[in-house]
């Protein structure tokens, strides 16, 4: 309940300041436009569209998700948060906020891909949907934890992609595999190993987040 109240505060603040939403929206539009211009009249393979989808999602996450903690640190409101809530509440509240942003961002990107890329054809929608949910959750959890770490650093801008790359790489590689399988029309049982990896990744990152956040949050 307290975490949801914190999320509500962040969301209302976001609607007024547009710290993250504008950055995400602009990044998505610019990236997809650049891809469309560079492809031109060329036809691209189905696998490539699946790969491009996750590349756009990965870099969009880099551009907007760090704001959850960075904006608090830049405005100096971190102390206020420390004084009104327990670390686990802060982590949960920021995670809910990032989950909402990631799902909004990923749904928009997928819809734009479906509209503009003829080659983006998913034959096993259930599997893609499963990967989409688990992948988005993984991105949100990892991004929240990394954002908390980098918000304390002086070189926030460069540190975020540097730290995110090794942490998100196993997730993105697994998502690419499942997307490829769902384009091929493979069944869920055929890609069960990859789905299990996603579930394990999400569980590990969530547990690590709650365990480590206390140490990150306190100066």
């Amino acid at each position: 309940m307290k975490a949801f109240a914190l999320f509500k505060k962040d969301w209302e603040s976001e609607l007024r300041t547009r710290y993250a939403v504008n950055a995400l929206a602009m990044f998505i539009l610019v990236t997809i436009s650049v891809i469309l211009f560079s492809i031109g009249q060329e036809s691209i393979s189905e696998y490539l569209t699946g790969g491009l989808l996750w590349v756009v999602i990965f870099f969009s996450a880099m551009s907007g998700l760090s704001r959850a903690f960075v904006s608090e640190e830049e405005r100096g409101t971190t102390l206020t948060l420390q004084l009104i809530s327990a670390p686990s509440t802060v982590f949960s509240g920021k995670l809910i906020f990032n989950l909402l942003l990631v799902f909004l961002m990923n749904i928009s990107i997928t819809i734009l891909f479906a509209l503009f890329f003829d080659a983006f054809v998913i034959r096993n929608l259930l599997m893609f949907f499963l990967a989409f949910i688990l992948g988005s959750f993984g991105i949100a959890v990892s991004s929240t934890l990394i954002a908390a770490i980098i918000s304390k650093a002086s070189t926030k801008g460069t540190l975020y992609p540097v730290l995110s790359f090794p942490v998100l790489l196993p997730l993105i590689l697994t998502l690419l595999e499942i997307t490829k399988s769902s384009i091929d029309g493979a069944t869920v049982s055929e890609t069960w190993v990859e789905i299990a990896i996603l579930i394990c990744y999400d569980a590990i990152m969530l547990t690590a987040g709650y365990l480590l956040f206390d140490f990150i949050w306190k100066d």
């Binding site: 505060k9 209302e12 206020t80 004084l83 509240g93």
Partner: peptide, 19 residues
């Protein structure tokens, strides 16, 4: 200590109470 300047005093207090 910095409070949220995009909110009014009352809104700040309502948010703080809920959190």
């Amino acid at each position: 200590l910095v409070l949220y300047d995009e909110f009014s005093a009352e809104e700040n207090l309502i948010h703080f109470a809920r959190i």
